[in-house]
Amino acid sequence: MYKILLKQDLVPNIHLFKIEAPAVAKKAQPGQFVVIRIDEKGERIPLTVADWDKAEGSVTVVCMEVGTTTRRLATLSTGDSIADFVGPLGIPTHIEKFGTVCCVAGGFAVAVVMPIARALREKGNKVISILGARNKDLLFWEDELRSVSDQLIITTDDGSYARKGLVTEPLKELVESGEKVDRVIAIGPSIMMKFCAKTTEPFGVKTIVSLNPIMVDGTGMCGCCRVSVGGATRFTCVDGPDFDGHQVDWDLLFARQRTYLEEEKRSLEQWQHQCGDYS
């Protein structure tokens, strides 16, 4: 059992969990993920690592409520425990002194971009970060991201805070601007990552995305997380989760993510019924 040392509700439907997992904390690197399972009947789901503390022996993950498992997770509190916490999995994000790197964080993925931006800055890169949220109530870790960036641009879809628009707009301006951008790292909902990649493609700026297909084991034994990159089939859990955004078959990823729409609906209905919530 892995204890929840801290559970924080960051913004509506997005929660932070600091989990006691000393062995994982010792090894975690930016861009890696863990697979968690709440209890015996629970499913295994991947969550990208947001932070870790070797001294404290803790790993922090941030998750957004989408289906049954993430909603059940949201009902847990500081002091509760979860059954399984496996990691660190996946290949860490490649960090080196590239020059100028633009880190684009979509919504809750600011949590995942944080350790990457921090590591890039520590390696001597100029880090320009773009943080986008649907509205100001869903924005979090603005100061945290600013603290590891040379420049921070914030967008909200509805203009309720900072600049109105999508993250792709300042991204396009940046790559068009004449300032040499050596690399872009874009992490967030798959559709956002796709459009970030499409935005940078005509400018030939290498764009790394972190793919989020459905997973079961996370160690390469089932092939559930297979994606097509550059025409070849890859397992996200062992070959990724980072891939070249210009090479990803996005339509295939979206389609495969929808494999269990029916089942997810059934599961949610059953859970809500169990909770007495008929909304």
């Binding site: 009947k41 079961v216 089942e263 059934r266 599961s267």
Partner: peptide, 17 residues
């Protein structure tokens, strides 16, 4: 793995479909 390990044959009582 879904069926045997994660007991998908008992979905939705068990969460893995």
């Amino acid at each position: 793995t879904r069926v045997n390990l994660m007991k998908a044959y008992l979905f939705p009582e068990y969460d893995t479909p």
